[in-house]
Amino acid sequence: MSQSTTNRSTKRSLGQRMNALWEYANPVKFMALSGKVLPWAVALCVITLVPGLIWGFFFTPEAANFGNSVKIIYVHVPSSTMAINIWVMMLVTSLIWLIRRHHVSALAAKAAAMIGVTMTVISLITGAVWGQPMWGTYWAWDPRLTSFLILFLFYLGYMALWAAIENPDTAADLTSVLCVVGSVFALLSRYAVNFWNQGLHQGASLSLDKEEHVSDVYWQPLVLAIIGFGFLFVVLLLVRTRTEVRRRRLHALMARERMIDA
């Protein structure tokens, strides 16, 4: 209620619809809404991810030259897609925190980092497992692989900075600045890595580009699995952000206790 008065005074120009959207950045409203949305998100996740993976694993033909190993793309490709998109989402929420100071936004970025790093690790591991039968090696300094390793390092730095700072607002400010600057350098690294190892591999030999040549038999369950991973991310993000909001509330209650005692 109090938040709405502030919003009205500062954001009238953006129109009512925008206004209504921003109000969900209030922690209390967010908790109420996310509590209602969560079961639906879980349901959507289950009805896309489970059939997508089962279809992909058991009801697609074995590829002639790869054998069964090709089926790892149903985990590898969605997790890679998520790993990148989660960083982009963190960039957006960090900017929202820096510009509009919505607490939920900062906490959502913190919550997303943990999921993002997990997706990156899954992507790297499944890539290595798949790379062994396909290329005869677990690791190659392919531009794509290297980019994901660098992305992993950026996630690690971002999370370490969150963990190191006690004051939650200070941590939110500094990690947001790091996320913005880091995004620029991550993008630069992507180009640098392409430049660094051009010509050694004949373009990207695995991952997304390949799907354009893949027949629909493989493509359709893959799309379903990617959508399923997207919903999985939404579910995990909501759960983790709710945890962070509760942790922050605990922090606020304890601070208030100390103030009353003092």
Binding site: T6, H251, A252, R256
Partner: peptide, 13 residues
């Protein structure tokens, strides 16, 4: 004062 709740934990209470 919640009108100035920027940067304060009150938003969470």
């Amino acid at each position: 004062d919640p009108a100035h709740s920027d940067g304060f934990d009150e938003a969470f209470l």
